[in-house]
Nucleic acid binder design. Structure first.
Lengths: 187, 187
DNA sequence: CTACGACGTAACGGTTGCGTTCCGCCGTTT
DNA sequence: AAACGGCGGAACGCAACCGTTACGTCGTAG
């Protein structure tokens, strides 16, 4: 039986290496070195780098994000923005996600894995968020959840993961107001 | 004197390699191979990979984007969205930019170069766009150009370069309306 | 107490790329 | 005609990593 503590050490090492050097430069030897294990322990579990990273990433990505339900759209939105912006400020997310996204542009298997992880997931959040708001009459009937997700996640991702500018205290507040107005206007 | 046609061949090869394998896996030997050139021709021009890529990227990025000035904010915005979305649909942009962005998270020199290229530039566009609109009374006085740029570029970048979903015919139209409403609301 | 199996270490041959050097070719300059 | 210099090609020694194998250790299950 494979030892669980070794598996955990490897998983952690992979995440750290991913954040530090990215998928392209990640090497099995470096992972083994960092995890303090032999290469053999890794090859006993996965047959190559791609398989290893995909399995580990899928696992991490499948952890459920709590669907916001505060009773009002502006409350839901504010909460969602808080959750996402906090997540994106962590090294794990802000380094690994853009890196894998760039990699996904070249590797169909990575692309597919991330699509499942991100789209399925965050799309579900968007649909619930918008659905609730429409049901409550806070947003017009025809509001497109797809556009809404772009309007909500896009700017945050851009600012935190791409432009890498800090967000000031009142940014999320301003942003909540702006997004609400934007979505009301598209109906 | 270094031969100009050789330099051009190398520059093109670098861009193509960047799009195909990314910065991390880009090798001088592959560039030379693709350009049909000896490695010596490359080392005669740049002393290493980073210097080479940075010089070439800076050069490309510094090409001016025409500042929109159609006479109305919605016209300016629609034009800007058109320009950016067209650019982001090209392989050159949609592969290279996310890749270098991810790389910039690790390499300060790349980060700095891209900051100059992107921020200075697109921030200037944003400030002009918003400034004109405010001057015309189309947007409220306190409109933050910084937030505006996030609201405009973020969703487009997210959808085209990250989520890699297509944009439908009426998407930009809907989006223009949404952004206008959003910015009016933040004043 | 024995057998099993996962472990770390070390080494294997092979590949790729680094940055450098030397060579002979060839067009341009003088 | 001769000198110069950029060129491609080939090879250098070095380093990293690939995926695999052999070996000896050690904890645990039987």
């Amino acid at each position: 039986m494979l030892r669980g503590d070794i598996t955990v050490a490897i998983r952690n090492a992979v995440m750290t290496e991913l954040a530090e050097v990215g998928y392209g430069r990640l090497s099995i030897e470096a992972v083994a070195r960092r995890a303090g294990v032999g290469k053999t322990a890794i090859y006993r579990r996965w047959s190559n780098k791609l398989e290893m990273v995909m399995e580990i990433i899928s696992d991490v990505a499948e952890r459920k994000v709590p669907l916001p339900d505060t009773g009002s759209f502006s409350g839901d939105l504010a909460l969602l923005l808080m959750i996402v912006s906090t997540a994106l400020r962590h090294r794990m997310a802000s380094q690994i996600i853009p890196d894998l996204m760039a990699e996904a542009a070249r590797n169909p298997q990575i692309s597919e894995t991330l699509q499942r992880a991100l789209r399925t997931h965050q799309q579900a959040v968007g649909e619930k968020l918008i659905g609730q708001a429409v049901a409550r009459g806070e947003l017009p009937d025809g509001t497109d959840p797809d556009v809404a997700v772009d309007m909500i996640l896009g700017p945050l991702y851009w600012r935190l993961a791409v432009a890498r500018q800090p967000i000031e205290d009142d940014y999320l507040e301003k942003f909540t107001i702006a997004v609400t107005a934007a979505l009301k206007a598209t109906g």
